[in-house]
Design a protein around this nucleic acid. Structure first.
Lengths: 210, 210
DNA sequence: GGGCGGGGGTGACACCTGTCATGGGCGGGA
DNA sequence: TCCCGCCCATGACAGGTGTCACCCCCGCCC
């Protein structure tokens, strides 16, 4: 497909964002561009693949924070279902772990919502052209932070600890011994350099490891 | 929309949101309306009053979550400086405490970013017309949740506890005895019905009490 | 095969937390 | 004026937490 027709066939765009106001605003913003056409809007990651199958978009703009299925998982599903559709992840939080996981899930670009609105359409065009779009500063931060140091269990235990419950609560929800939970927590605390489970959970969350 | 406006002068709108992408998208969305004109955009609450003085807007759309000065405080300052300018608070999180505090600060409306984009312009018009715009469901939730049960100190201690540090850390930052910190924490835990400080902090945050 | 890392578990120990009783000081309302 | 709520503080106590040593099982890889 050597489709270099710039203004003839517009780039078909799918929008996935749980905030209707933001989604709608971005849709009008992109629809103003003559070479872009928003062909679908969904409010949850769980609806991405179905909408994409129906409307066959060229590029999908996917938010990370969504209620049922998050944007990273949705990206992976979408890439598996429609390999021809490229994904540009758009997110509120520029967490290093998000960037890494998004790229591993098959995203072609990663844009933070701090970036000027004028650049969004250009990011879509670049992604559609097969280029990778990543904020350089965030990429550096991602490298500096390193990757998720946790084991699967540690991550689960730490995620369960975010709710603020006791060790007994976590043990009950994960069906584990209290001692085992404390061992995992202790390990996670050690790996993050924290001094309490709450601090460890905060650090993990800020890095996008949960 | 069939808005027959007798006077041809458009409603002057100021936008305050820290996410440039969202801000820009909302600006284009509102500028498409013939009776609305975005006359200023700022990325922080600290810049709201200065920009309003310069551009004399009729309505200010203010986000709650902003880096230096939050939207609630910015609303209060703006109402004091330019009483003729009405404020419509737009926020990601529909927390009951946010709504209450926004109205107390002098806001005329409160809109969550979940609402459809089509309704935003209408909300601006209503606010400009002197009406109050509040999501009924959120208003009910706000009444059900009651208001901030904490004393000033309890709030401070709980806010400091969010970082995840120990009692000693909190005592150091607030210049208090460790025993006093534990007393305040215990009181806050009791008022929220929580069982740990982390849970209490989570509850307080979800209700917009911090 | 032996080593290694992950998962699950137990027991013990020092330390931190949450609770309560109690006290003093300060300001505002009946 | 007295009373009440808030703030600060102390001390004591039960129970939760974080750490460590040590155990087992399993799968992987040199």
């Amino acid at each position: 497909m050597t489709s270099q027709h710039r203004d003839r066939t517009p780039i078909r765009v799918l929008l996935a964002d749980d905030q209707a106001l933001v989604r709608g605003a971005m849709a009008t913003l992109l629809d103003l561009e003559p070479d872009l056409e928003v062909v679908a809007q969904v409010g949850d990651g769980a609806d991405v693949v179905a909408a994409a199958r129906r409307t066959q978009p060229d590029v999908a703009l996917v938010d990370v924070e969504m209620p049922q299925l998050d944007g990273i998982s949705a990206t992976a599903s979408l890439r598996a279902a429609l390999p021809g559709c490229r994904v540009l992840v758009v997110t509120t939080f520029g967490r290093p772990g998000y960037l890494r996981r998004a790229m591993e899930a098959g995203a072609s670009g990663f844009v933070v919502k701090d970036t000027p609105a004028e650049r969004l359409a250009d990011a879509v065009r670049r992604v559609h052209a097969g280029l990778r779009v990543v904020d350089p500063a965030l990429a550096a931060e991602s490298l500096a932070a390193g990757q998720d140091p946790f084991t699967a269990r540690e991550r689960e235990v730490l995620a369960a600890a975010r709710a603020g419950g006791t060790v007994a609560d976590i043990a009950r929800t994960l069906v584990l011994s209290e001692g085992t939970v404390r061992n995992h927590l202790s390990s996670a605390i050690g790996k993050t350099g924290a001094r309490t489970r709450a601090e460890a959970a905060r650090i993990a969350e800020e890095n996008g490891w949960l």
